[in-house]
Design a protein around this nucleic acid. Structure first.
Lengths: 225, 225
DNA sequence: CGCGGGGTTGAGCGCCATCAATTGGAGTGG
DNA sequence: CCACTCCAATTGATGGCGCTCAACCCCGCG
């Protein structure tokens, strides 16, 4: 097992949507930084909801090339099966706390409301998010990619500071590069370009202040130049 | 309405999986070549299963850049909602026949088995396929992209010819380019490269014979060179 | 202090985009 | 039957964005 420590804790629910699971007893899992939750090819026994921390979902090619599929933030559901198996690796960028939901095998799972409802809803959300990611990977320049990434992150987990916005980046430059289909060098150079364009400010390499959110959004959509 | 002609026809079911809908009456829709099934931003009222023909799902940027998200072949489910709306355009590359399933609004839909089961299963399949597509868009060269595309298509809809394989390409070079994140010129040049490497043979621009499927698969994974 | 790893910056190059010309087939009309 | 148009596909010439290889900085750590 890759989960080093699994413990029941006080149940704790998000209340920002109407479809949260009302179940009184949901097993919680603690996942230390760097540990794997599952690997590509593993049988799917559970799906997880991120409660705290950030996960990384990625795929590897035989020669080592990597693509980060998604970052799992609180509220995200991870571990959807395809043909009963996990299709990505998943590990923790920070210490994380997860709710785990047993998944009846073989696929398809027993679809009991409201678990089925939330799962399906989450799957649809995921598909929508991936469609945005496609446009980013296939059709955007390096600046547009990074601007899009920061724009999405700001809306999702940004901490407002006046009309600016602070974002913590728990992932490395290499992770961002593998998410955007770039190299670490290009990501770094592009951070510098955004900084010199006075759109962002780097408090430190892992903390970005978006000084001009509107300008960032314009760049993300390629409407500048 | 974009569906120019909707008619009830004899019900006709695929039987290749156990989870097909057993419903006796499923409305069928005919979609002539070139017609749109829905647009990005439309409210989702139905999801569709492709019975015959090929659909194109795509997204457009404000400046005209396009990303083809997927091609919908028989057996595929299209029209998953995100926040109640379609997140892609969908139109027909060939004349197509679809089964349509009413989708209760607002989201999340009522999840009645077995419609819920098939839908969720299809959504998971879709997520798995998109994860492959990510690797292709983000991390592969032009040759690897086109080889991957042809490899997947061959397994999915290829017609075996001895130990070779024939594929019909109902989509244009521009469609393939927008699917792979390339230009039409690069797609065309890459077809030529595969042809000169004696991995494929172009019967005509819309018909590919894969003369060495194993070699194509190796190229798709970047294990040549 | 030496070491290692992540981040940044620089120099040069290669793959693919861009712009442009040519080919070929389908459709149309003389 | 041929001339013409139109559009998709192909091929060629050139340039640029991002990759590669490398050096350097910074910081935490043994």
């Amino acid at each position: 097992m890759y989960v080093t420590q699994a413990c029941e804790t006080d149940t704790h629910f998000f209340c920002d949507t109407a479809d949260r699971l009302p179940e009184p007893q949901v097993p919680k899992v603690r996942l230390p930084m760097g540990d794997h939750l599952f690997f590509e090819g593993d049988e799917v026994t559970h799906v997880y909801r991120v409660e705290e921390g950030v996960l990384r979902l990625s795929r590897l090619m035989e020669d080592g090339r990597r693509q980060v599929i998604a970052f799992g933030y609180p509220g995200d559901i991870v571990g959807f099966p395809a043909a009963g198996k996990h299709h990505t690796d998943c590990d923790a960028l920070t210490g994380a706390k997860l709710s785990s939901f047993r998944f009846a095998q073989p696929v398809p799972m027993s679809v009991e409301a409201p678990l089925g409802r939330e799962l399906m809803h989450a799957a649809f959300q995921e598909i929508g998010a991936m469609q945005d990611h496609f446009m980013m990977l296939g059709r955007k320049s390096a600046v547009e990619k990074l601007a899009s990434f920061l724009d999405v992150l700001a809306r999702r987990v940004g901490e407002p500071v006046g009309d600016m916005c602070r974002i913590a980046l728990p992932m490395s430059r290499a992770d961002i590069a593998d998410f955007l289909g770039l190299t670490t060098e290009t990501v770094s150079r592009t951070f510098t370009r955004l900084r010199k364009a006075r759109v962002i400010f780097l408090e430190d390499p892992q903390t970005v202040i978006i000084t001009r959110p509107d300008a960032l959004n314009v760049m993300a959509r390629g409407l500048d130049s």
